[in-house]
Design a protein around this nucleic acid. Structure first.
Lengths: 374, 374
DNA sequence: CGCAAAAATGTAAACGTTTACACGAATCGC
DNA sequence: GCGATTCGTGTAAACGTTTACATTTTTGCG
């Protein structure tokens, strides 16, 4: 595409077309190599020369052509983020975390969201390769995870919130968080605790369920089943589950919803059913979404520092990018924090002296663990 | 950087390094030009040759180097999105809208968020230029807007939710939406309507205030001032405003909060103050954030189709990118939709026959306008 | 069959960087 | 003062595409 044919020798400029490194070199009376060195802070170049170059660059409002640079150094200083069709808060918070960390290191982020099926995701990964130095894939859906693992090789990849798998990954400490929630409820004297589960194909939902079951392990299967209610991480489903719980015969005294949205839904259901929270029902959620503190009563929940998740994920990805060889797969987990508000009627008056009928999962030694703060 | 020195002639591959167009050409027994033509669907190339090329490319798992391509065609097929430090839902929804539209056109999006001051934003714009074919800048803050306008020339730019200004821009129909809200309240018989305002440096907040004032224009200034409460778009500020409204002496019968978050906060304040909504107080918000329907009572609000905002913005930007010359600045506005829920006690029994004392802003002819549906 | 026009393909010059290597000019030790 | 370093800079070859232009092959037609 030989349009301005003598670009490297002529000054041009003036009419249009951004200044190139050659223009700067010409104006500063040095070679392009020197300009490049000055602008990249590489090697030793005389202070005076450096000043001239910088002045010329400034005068010409020179900004390096990234494509050319990428081509030459074979890196794009960009990472890709592939997200499923995930909602609001979470989505943006994780991007914010990554963005902050990335910008600090001079990286840009290329995002592609709203992918619900593996095929589409793979396609996106394909179009991103070559354009990015590394990839961050969020695959909370268990059906997506394995596929991503296989593919995308020869490009650094970090998985976010993925189910199991082998590669590098950052996840939320769902299991630990769920156990901490349960411990809190136990400490409050609850034993008949219902659980509103998230969609089972979602890895986070599964882990939270596992935490719940772990805490309820004393119970016989049938009894446990009666306490578990299926939800879908939405307010609607939480509302529906709340209605069923309200109608359950030996009515549970507490509900642990696998996320805040469902907890909020359940709260609404209890309100319409005339069940008073926290007096006759305690409710705990998970995530600590912003409105959690504004529902009535304010929701006790497990806070997840999503931005931190993004930050950590970027750090991990960067370490792989920088030295792909000397890297062994790492799976990190970000801790969660219990935030006690009004929805579970905090320090209940009648504690352990009561002989509780279904007292399950008790007597474990209370090892403090991460994700348990307050 | 001459490492694999004979790349263009040798087959190489096998050990590492992605295949180049030369590798494909060699394997298919054609020239690189032909490969390029086939892969870009350009010009006429014999069906048979085409098949061979495609096969070779597939075999070598060839994927074009974008940097090289960008360098050659002088376009990156990428647009940049610069966002302020904006919260959750909105942030992600707008990205989703843009992403969807962009992907359909084969564009990628480079995002950079969380910029609170103009300087930082400008810096980001600077690092993005050359990397993107166009820019989308969201600047709801009036202090940011003008600065962005001036700069960033010689690169297609579309402003999102910006205050006034001259360039291309897409905004929400805040004024129209606010008026529609007020009309709804009037139709319900309210005249003593309080307004919880957003931060005044925010363009959206200002426009909504303008809509409110327009509807209340019959009122004398002092009376109006007594009905306006300052907020900051947060739940906290909404709560605080709610408390003040609850204590106001001729207590308003309705509250229009400039966004849902504040409406939710106000709702909480009324609940604690023992004021029943909608019986003794109607509340309307703006935005229709997801929890709006799950608070008690469900919030009547003005829905903003944020994804649509993103979509439209992309369409506009693309049109500028494609033909920068034949383009005259356009300012578009996306409509809003009234969503009636429980918080304003819908069709009140006592309508117009009552002689209302402060009946302001009445008797306008009801021109149906966009943003008024239901 | 021969020749012109059309169709298909190849050649090589851009695109704007980075950087290995070469080269001249200071600087140093003696 | 003179070779050996060191320092500062320049030259030019990559990086992997696209595409104007040249060249070859095919086709059409008398």
């Amino acid at each position: 595409m030989p349009i301005p044919r003598d670009a490297r020798t002529t000054r041009r400029r003036s009419n249009a077309a951004a200044a190139t490194i050659h223009d700067v070199a010409a104006r500063a009376g040095v070679s392009v190599a020197t300009v490049s060195r000055v602008l990249n802070g590489i090697a030793v170049v005389r202070e005076e020369t450096s000043r001239d170059v910088r002045a010329a660059a400034k005068f010409l409002r020179y900004v390096p052509n990234v494509a050319a640079r990428s081509l030459s150094i074979r890196r794009s200083q960009t990472i890709g983020i592939v997200l499923p069709d995930v909602h609001g808060e979470f989505f943006s918070e994780v991007i914010r975390g990554i963005d902050l960390a990335a910008r600090r290191e001079g990286y840009h982020i290329l995002v592609s969201g709203s992918h619900s099926d593996p095929g589409e995701m793979l396609e996106v990964v394909e179009t991103m390769r070559g354009r990015v130095d590394g990839l961050m894939i969020m695959a909370p859906d268990v059906t997506l995870a394995p596929i991503e693992e296989l593919r995308a090789r020869e490009l650094p990849v970090v998985l976010l919130n993925a189910a199991a798998g082998t590669g590098d990954a950052i996840t939320i400490d769902n299991f630990g968080g769920a156990r901490a929630v349960m411990r809190h409820l136990h400490d409050l004297g609850h034993t008949h605790i219902a659980f509103v589960c998230g969609p089972l194909h979602n890895a986070d939902a599964r882990e939270r369920l596992r935490g719940y079951r772990h805490a309820m392990r004393g119970l016989e299967p049938a009894a446990l089943r009666a306490l578990e209610f299926q939800g879908a991480f939405t307010e609607e489903s939480g509302f529906a589950a709340g209605e069923r719980i309200a109608a359950a015969l030996p009515r549970p005294t507490a509900v642990f919803a696998a996320n805040d949205s469902m907890a909020v839904g359940a709260l609404a259901a209890f309100a319409t059913a005339g069940i008073r929270v926290p007096d006759s029902m305690s409710v705990v959620g998970f995530d600590d979404i912003p409105i959690a503190r504004y529902v009535a009563p304010p929701l006790t929940t497990m806070r997840v520092d999503i931005a931190e998740l993004g930050r950590r994920a970027f750090a991990l990805l960067l370490s792989i990018i920088i030295n792909p060889a000397a890297h062994t797969a790492r799976r990190e987990r970000v801790a969660t924090t219990l935030v006690v508000r009004g929805s579970c009627g905090a320090p209940k008056p009648q504690p352990k002296q009561y002989a509780q009928p279904h007292r399950a999962a008790r007597g474990r030694k209370r090892v403090p663990e991460k994700g348990e703060v307050s």
